[in-house]
Nucleic acid binder design. Structure first.
Lengths: 331, 331
DNA sequence: GGATCGGCTGGGACCGGTCACAGGCCCGCG
DNA sequence: CGCGGGCCTGTGACCGGTCCCAGCCGATCC
């Protein structure tokens, strides 16, 4: 072991165990046909030396790193964060490792992140693609490494893992409509987000399905502040508001209550996300729960299939659920 | 380029540009003393071939991966998450890459995560060590890769980047005390967290510094639900509550209001974290803001110093600030 | 004019694993 | 007693970069 301070190598182990490096390799990779006694000697040597396999060397020859890359947004919202966390857990369960980097939605930045991960030799990439511009960055990206899209909302079929946004929006709207509301307004997220776009569309569809005229849509940016601002822009005849996410709903309620209106007495509010804060806001928020962990797990399944050249499992969206709390009431 | 489907190698580029692989390497690494004309030819060849350097090969010979590892908790709270995000950004700015894995606080799990990262050849590790048990996992971990602790609260000096918890707790307490409150109760996080421990101690210190007797401390688990539960365990004589974090404060306020008490009319509440939801909760929450991004940046500075064998910059804690909103009022 | 020197380039070993292949040994069989 | 065939093991090439060293060239110097 006369190599700098690099730690023992396979040859050192081999020498100590009195075998060849190849035998050590076989033990490490669980190859059959090794005499138990030999195997034990090798294992003992590994232990004594504190040997640890060098993955760079391994990756160099195999061309596989057993690592998947993840690209998330610069500003981490609860959704992407939870999803990537789900990916990480599912990957670890599958014996894979994860490497994460972030990128703002500009194509340039996404391309950079992609290049970085490909350069690191990841076997597949999970890309949070809530915004259309992120997906556009992939145009002409004909790399040999498969890319799975996350949280596209179910817009494009194909290699993507998402929550069914239309279904979620319909859940919220039907809840409000079933309570008797007809003047329902929508505070949406930025239209650059596919999810916001889909929730918007479904808002309109849900209204017209009941023969109702949609009210003007107020555009927010997902933050509590923008929800607060939306409060003063609300249609005075509205008796219910479907908010694009919980944070905006919280801000909106704050504005409403400040203006002397009672929630849900005067006006009902429903959110989207089921954040921790929504459980105990005043009033506790009726909202749509999304299982981000399931999205992550599904993404990993897709990546493994893609990596191994298998047919991808049939596309399937994760179904959201409605959580009824106290921010909504019958008209 | 007759190698499987591995993409072009340095030799392919060299052949195309009519130079040696060594010259290509020099161009790639910005070595001086290359004729501009030669350099351009190489660059052109790289571009035409879509060549990309194989980092596994590079890491194999240099022994450096230009990557830092991060270990976060299984359940991602806002603090660790924001901090790791800060590490990621600062690392990228320094030309380093990050690889993240998570571990539950059990020593076993932390050791595994450590081993994994060391095996991947990271140059340094940032470890979220809010809980004492996490730090204990490092006993006898004499690896050659430096480990920086995150969010220890400033308890142990040394290779750690944290926010000054004592100062933050003092900020919250002095605010309440200056408003004239004397019956102040504390809802703390789990004592296994150093941060919770430090906030607790400072609560007691702040009280006795003014000659006041501390009230019984209620123990929560950081969640809104535990804050809600704390609401019914509150000392009836308390006129103010210092909560260990915003989520618990939100749950507590919910319980209080449900029980018919007014915040801040009957009782003042201050939180800790400055989460997005706290800006527009009802009432908007007075809380302590922590600059997690700065912690991340500081951690990266420490890691670079450690990696290069430099003397670590003198230990310094990030100072929190008080954000006054509407959940507190004079007695 | 020959030696020296600096700018620029090439040749080969090496990092630490995996893979393909070639044995050595011992057994059973004819 | 010789030979084929498992079982188990060793040998050497190779992955794609970086590092060390040598060599070429023209210009400068004495």
């Amino acid at each position: 072991m006369a190599n700098g301070n690099r730690g023992p190598s396979m040859h050192d182990v081999a020498a100590r165990a009195g075998v060849s490096h190849q035998t050590v390799s076989r033990v490490l990779n669980d190859f059959p046909g090794i005499r138990p006694e030999t195997r034990d000697r090798v294992l003992a040597a590994i232990d004594e030396l504190g040997y640890r396999r060098n993955l760079a060397a391994r990756a160099l020859v195999t061309g596989r790193t057993q690592t998947i890359g993840m690209i998330g947004p610069e500003i981490p919202d609860i959704g992407p964060l939870s999803t990537l966390h789900g990916v990480e857990r599912a990957a670890r369960a599958a014996g894979l490792h994860t490497m994460m980097t972030s990128a703002d939605p500009a194509s340039e930045s996404v391309r950079e992140a992609l290049d970085f991960l490909v350069g690191r030799g990841v076997d597949a990439i999970a890309l949070v693609a809530q915004q259309r511009s992120v997906r556009e960055a992939l145009e002409g990206f004909d790399e040999r490494v498969p890319v799975i899209h996350l949280l596209t909302g179910g817009d494009p079929a194909g290699a993507a893992a998402s929550i069914d946004q239309r279904a979620g929006a319909r859940l919220a709207m039907d809840h409000l409509l079933d309570l008797g509301h007809t003047r329902i307004q929508h505070v949406s997220g930025p239209p650059s987000y596919t999810e916001a776009q889909l929730r918007r569309e479904e808002y309109g569809a849900a209204m017209s399905d009941r023969g109702l005229e949609p009210l003007e849509i107020i555009e927010g940016d997902w933050t509590t502040d923008s929800g607060f601002a939306a409060g003063s822009a609300l249609d005075p005849t509205a008796t219910a508001v479907f908010c694009g996410n919980d944070d905006m709903a919280l801000g909106l309620i704050h504005a409403l209550v400040t203006a002397g209106r009672d929630v849900p007495g005067d006006i009902s509010v429903v959110g989207f996300d089921d954040t921790p804060a929504s459980r105990h806001s005043l009033p506790p928020l009726t909202t749509v729960h999304q299982d981000f962990g399931a999205v992550g797990a599904w993404a990993v399944a897709l990546m493994i299939a893609a990596r191994d050249g298998l047919e991808p499992p049939s596309a399937e969206l994760i179904a959201p659920t409605l959580v009824e709390r106290s921010s909504t009431a019958p008209l």
